[in-house]
Design a protein around this nucleic acid. Structure first.
Lengths: 250, 250
DNA sequence: CTGTATTTTCGTCACTTGACGAAGTTACAT
DNA sequence: ATGTAACTTCGTCAAGTGACGAAAATACAG
């Protein structure tokens, strides 16, 4: 059922995707370089220090001053980001791996999408007709995509480790969970994924569907880890999936 | 169960992987460039003509005269290969996509591996204790990896189109099929995948396991399309998978 | 063997990159 | 308002790349 990729293989895949996207960008490798650095939450200054160059070098690349950087430069840039992330526990890389190389194919995954451009999470929350329970002001934050899970199937079909990765490692994305009765288990899992890390890697927003009676613990967890928790009024999973599929970034 | 990637998405993924591997190669982008070109079965002369440069330019890149080509150069190279393949029906790209982005995750796939270096297929054939029925002399040809399928599960779980792709599109690789009774269906499918193509895309060798009574038609097909057909004497799928996993390229 | 096709090697030169550092700009905290 | 941190812009120069074409080497068919 599942093909499990080991960690170094997944990291290599991530690195290749990053380098590949930079190379193949239409006109502006620099903009793609900047985007990846931002996704790793690393500053130009820190990256420059790590690569042993002056910060203006990074700025020149990302601004597009160099129209066509050399392969060696791209290699150092990509590996620098990954090495620095690894020195911080590697959580962002782990989260990003799933965008580039889905290692889990399961009918628990209803839908998964990458927008290509940052979108305020509020737009998705509104599309799914949600009531916002915590941290409403954080809905101005941008997301880059979403993963939608059938939480019942997820519990049956996925190992605890896989669940942890799916729930926790969706940085800068929305986690959408259907067929949720109280919201307790997902929120516990998401909180558990924060333990022992120096870098915040968590969903930008959690959207629950199917909630009959929301567990106050779920709300308290969302509040404590600063995640907007939203409950969709859409009654069926099929209907919610259809709304998701019809969501168009502006 | 299955996540199906559309064709342009898969091509983009292939292009990224190619560019990514070139960028991230340890010391020699040129050697990786050469490898990809060879896998597309395109000559330096034809690629040079397509890119509107002189053939010595391609040779200089691939030989490593340029230690660190520019991003723009890699982009043109990769896109040139893919465009040229597309003009020939796109069959090699379709086959290569599966190496870089497995779109089918199924328990029908027992194992799938990329060696990273070319290996004479004879070594794998010997590892699996095979009797060679056709085109023994072709076993000196190199393969780059293998895909091993449980043919019973494949028939149950995969669509005819997916079967066609798995059986037919394994260029420069070994196709290993377990729990095969007569060998007839796989060989018919492989032959069917050759129809209407101007570029030969087929397994470098077919290895069958579990054969009780080999259908002479299977042998005739293998003979006519110039594929070495081998029957492994290993009795169980588990045992064969274990041998595969322990196979070490020299 | 000859002829042809493909690939390789290498000198050459205009152009671009990698990198520095100075100066300027922007953002944020106090 | 001031001070600090992060980022941007840009002049500069040595080194490397992109590409040509001539000559040589290699591979293959008849």
């Amino acid at each position: 059922m599942f093909r499990v990729m080991d960690q170094s293989e997944a990291l290599q895949k991530l690195a290749e995707t990053m380098a590949g996207e930079i190379c193949l960008s239409e006109n502006d490798p620099g903009a793609v370089m900047k985007r990846w650095r931002e996704r790793f939450q690393i500053s130009q200054k820190d990256l420059a220090k790590h690569l042993d160059v002056s910060p203006s070098v990074i700025s020149d690349y990302e601004s597009g001053r160099r129209k066509s950087p050399r392969v060696e430069t791209i290699k150092r840039f990509v590996e620098g980001l990954i090495d620095m992330d690894a020195a911080n526990g590697g959580r962002i890389a782990m989260a990003l791996e799933k965008l580039v190389s889905p290692e889990i194919a399961s009918d628990a995954i209803l839908d998964s999408r990458e927008f290509g451009v940052p979108i305020p999470s509020r737009l998705l929350v509104e599309k799914l007709d949600c009531k916002v329970l915590t941290h409403k002001s954080l809905l101005d934050r941008d997301i880059y995509g979403y993963t939608a899970l059938d939480s019942v199937k997820a519990i049956v079909n996925l190992t605890p480790q896989q669940l942890l990765r799916l729930y926790g490692g969706t940085t800068q994305r929305a986690a959408i969970l259907t067929n949720v009765k109280t919201g307790r288990s997902p929120m516990v899992a998401i909180k558990a994924s924060q333990i022992g890390t120096s870098v915040a890697v968590k969903p930008a927003v959690v959207i629950l569907q199917g909630v009959k009676e929301l567990d106050p613990l779920a709300v308290r967890i969302a509040d404590s880890i600063h995640i907007p928790l939203c409950v969709s009024s859409i009654q069926t999973q099929d209907r919610l999936t259809k709304e998701l599929r019809s969501f168009e970034p502006p």
